[in-house]
Design a protein around this nucleic acid. Structure first.
Length: 448
DNA sequence: TCTGGGGTCCTAGGACCC
DNA sequence: TCTGGGGTCCTAGGACCC
């Protein structure tokens, strides 16, 4: 059996923990750059606000109904998530952190122990609420896909008390009939359209299609597994998250710029800044990366811009895997020059680190590179700097004194005439950001 | 004026290898 | 006239997730 614990309206709920006056009132949280709605309270959903709505489009509606708006505060959400996950880790034998606000629980064999998984799920739910203030729903079922489905039904039907346990075939059949095919985990817009056109409208209909049909029309083996899981046959196990954190197979950092950029120097500094951040995440997870991708995007909403809206370059690092910001930067600069089209307005850039492995596993010297033990004169000079040590010091300083305290020079634009530092033009808006209550001493909540 | 960011898995085609 | 088969790696892109 699997449990799926999913936080309700997670970002909104995080804000409400520290500002309880927003309970019972419409609240939304916006994406980076205050661009789109990414979290909505139940009251905001009832007003017809949808996930992903651009802020500027729904602004009148928000004002009309006096909806409270927050910019996203990832320092807060990340820390609240850590607390929720820590508690889950204490409560279940195996936990797989699936996203910032969701985790699968391994409940194999626990029925015998506990008698009722329903009561257990309710206990977990109450425990998360008591310890963090975050409301959740819990679905329990024999496969991950069915646990997701059960969770969804629990969310939609408050009378269930936030928990649904699909313990027998009759309940499962009932549950499958409750859910539209487009709301099944793994069925997105494209597939939903295709399925309804073929007369498959509910999860129950989808559970009845043949393996061959699923393979042919739902992305091959992925679709076949999905159907099996709906039928109650598990195709995916639980991958426990070590020490309460999620190790990733790729790390990326990208941003839509605060305003469109046309100058190479600006975009280059932006890319350097994103890559520095990605490399920092990489080192925090104690990995090195062997593959680097850089991409540039134009404005995909502009009527005068033709696709492709994005160009990317991917490079397997000839010098082997690294976690050194300066090494990664030297490659990124060259890749950016290759992608650059003069006279273009760029809206967004990003970097991706792939081929992650722990340091020291697969060092590969390039054909033209001498091993570090016999350096030439120039290398001798650069080798005086202990790079891993340099990176560790950089991270330690930024950890202690705040992100960005010490930076690689290429992420900083030359000062304006008069010597004043230039604000980074790629940084976006965040007009309504709440304090980092739990991660910055100055932001600590004061209770009178 | 204004439209997010960070992930996963899978497939397909070309280059290259034996 | 006639031109293999099986494999890997790389790159790009599609579909999906939260």
């Amino acid at each position: 059996m699997f449990g799926l614990v999913d936080c309700n309206n997670f970002y909104v709920s995080c804000e409400r923990v520290f500002q309880p006056r927003y309970e019972g009132r419409p609240v939304v949280v916006l994406s980076n750059n205050d661009g789109n709605i990414i979290s909505r309270s139940a009251e905001a959903k009832a007003l017809g606000l949808r996930m992903g709505d651009p802020y500027f489009q729904v602004k009148p509606l928000l004002q009309q109904h006096n909806v409270t708006v927050f910019s996203s505060n990832y320092a807060l959400y990340g820390d609240m998530s850590r607390r929720v996950m820590w508690y889950l880790g204490q409560s279940a034998p195996g936990v797989e952190i699936y996203s910032i606000d969701e985790a699968f629980l391994d409940l194999a064999g626990m029925e015998k122990h506990l008698g009722s998984l329903d009561a257990f799920a309710r206990k977990i739910r109450a425990g998360v609420k008591a310890r963090t203030g975050i409301p959740t729903c819990v679905g329990v079922a024999p496969t991950k896909t069915l646990a997701k489905l059960a969770n969804r039904i629990a969310k939609k039907n408050p009378d269930l008390g936030g928990v649904l346990y699909l313990d027998n075939a009759a309940r499962r059949a009932w549950a499958l009939g409750q859910v539209a095919v487009g709301d099944v985990w793994g069925i997105g817009r494209q597939y939903a359209q295709k399925l309804t056109a073929a007369g498959i409208d509910t999860a129950a209909d989808l559970a009845r299609v043949s393996d061959t049909w699923a393979r042919k029309h739902l992305g091959g083996v992925v679709g076949a597994r999905l159907v099996q899981e709906l039928q109650g046959r598990p195709c995916a196990g639980l991958h426990p998250s070590e020490d309460g954190t999620l190790a990733r197979q790729s790390i990326s950092c990208s941003r839509t710029f605060g305003r469109p950029l046309a100058a190479f120097a600006d975009v280059q500094a932006a890319v350097a800044s994103f890559l520095s951040r990605a490399a920092e995440k990489l080192r925090r997870q104690n990995d090195t990366a062997h593959v680097l991708t850089v991409y540039l995007s134009k404005n995909r909403f502009a009527t005068n811009v033709l696709p492709p809206f994005s160009r990317s370059a991917t490079l397997t690092l000839p010098s082997g895997p690294t976690a050194d910001t300066t090494v990664l930067l030297s490659y990124a600069r060259a890749m950016l020059s290759r992608l650059w089209e003069p006279g273009t307005l760029y809206h967004k850039a990003g970097v991706v680190l792939d081929g992650l492995e722990p340091p020291g596993t697969g060092q590969q010297l390039s054909l033209f590179e001498k091993p570090a033990s016999i350096p030439n004169k120039r290398e001798e000079k650069s080798l005086k700097v202990d790079r891993p040590g340099l990176m560790a010091s950089l991270d330690a300083l930024n950890q202690r004194f705040g992100r960005g305290t010490v930076r690689v020079a290429s992420t900083v634009l030359p000062p304006a005439p008069g010597g004043r530092p230039v604000p980074a033009p790629w940084e976006g808006k965040a007009q309504w950001r709440s304090p980092a209550y739990t991660t910055r001493l100055e932001d600590l909540l004061i209770v009178r």
